[in-house]
């Protein structure tokens, strides 16, 4: 059963990376970024295209850079010019971006499955008597390091402090001379980097490589972000783990869940999300907006 636990942890760590991207962008610029999944796919695509030329680690850097630059371009050219528009319009803007990017990326991927050339390939190691793909273990380690680094930056760096201040009270932050535009820019950049990192593991074993189905997988980071609370960094981590565990256990107990229909594992995270939101509409760690009348 430890295999399921590790699968859940590993999936959860990767979902947390993606969910963190949603949360950072939402906190900094109040955009619910539907194009975030496209950043993940773009990162994976660039890594897959360049790994023979640059070697795996070079390709990973290229993929991360591509996702980050893409996020930056979307923020600067499309989101920023309408930053005073209603939040709904901002969200729909990212949907327009997503439609274009996904159409092009999925067309380029075609029906093939593109390997990303992870050096650990499909190797597996035996832990407590069960076979666990190395990819899952590397994913946990890297995710812990990246998230740790992010938390340090978020807690101590000038950007992190400024960003938290801005999320607390935008007007006061701006009056104090904080540059909200720059805060938002850095947030999108970081979201892009997180997307590029997550892409490596979402396409690794047991998944054979980059396929158009990645788009659907990335969508499961949405429940992760909402379960934790769209404006909560710790929430993204907890939400990621909840979604990862839910998925892993739903797959492990598939035969017992047969009465709910096949493929219930993919729907489970969404069901959990609805239950959480019925009880706590702002998510587990989200800030409740109260207003006295």
């Amino acid at each position: 059963m430890s295999e399921t636990l590790i699968t859940g942890l590993s999936l959860g760590a990767v979902y947390a990376l993606v969910a963190l991207g949603f949360v950072v962008v939402f906190k900094a610029s109040e955009v619910l970024n539907f194009a975030h999944g496209s950043f993940v796919i773009a990162g994976a695509y660039v890594t897959a295209r360049t790994h023979e030329l640059l070697g795996f680690y070079g390709a990973v850097l290229a993929g991360i850079a591509a996702a980050a630059v893409l996020a930056l371009v979307v923020e600067r050219l499309l989101v920023r010019p309408i930053r005073d528009a209603p939040v709904i319009s901002l969200a729909i803007m990212t949907i327009g971006v997503e439609v274009i990017l996904n159409t092009e990326l999925i067309r380029r991927i075609g029906v093939d499955i593109m390997p990303l050339g992870q050096p650990w390939g499909a190797d597996a190691v035996s832990i407590l008597g069960s076979n666990v793909p190395v990819n899952r273990i590397v994913a946990v380690i890297v995710a812990v390091i990246v998230i740790g680094a992010f938390l340090l930056v978020f807690r101590f760096s000038p950007w992190g402090v400024a960003m938290r201040a801005a999320a607390e009270d935008r007007e006061t932050a701006e009056l104090l001379g904080l540059n909200l535009g720059r805060i938002s820019m850095v947030a999108w950049l970081i979201a892009g980097i997180l997307a590029g990192v997550a892409a490596i593991f979402l396409t690794g074993a047991p998944t054979p490589g980059l396929a158009p189905t990645l788009a659907a997988v990335v969508l499961r980071a949405f429940p992760a972000a909402l379960i934790g609370g769209l404006d909560s960094v710790p929430g993204a981590l907890v939400g990621g783990l909840i979604v990862g565990m839910t998925e892993a256990y739903a797959v492990a107990f598939q035969s017992e869940l047969e009465f709910l229909g096949r493929g219930i594992g993919e729907v489970m995270p969404f069901l959990v999300m609805i239950i959480v939101l019925v009880i706590r509409p702002q998510g587990l760690f989200g800030r409740k907006e109260t207003a006295r009348v």
Binding site: L32, F222, L226, L260, G263, L271
Partner: peptide, 23 residues
């Protein structure tokens, strides 16, 4: 739910609907 939260939450219904139609 506030506007944006509803947007993301309602995504759940799409997947549940697909699952029901399939199974």
């Amino acid at each position: 739910l506030r506007g944006l939260y509803l947007g993301a939450a309602s995504l759940a219904l799409v997947f549940i609907g697909l699952h029901v139609l399939n199974s």
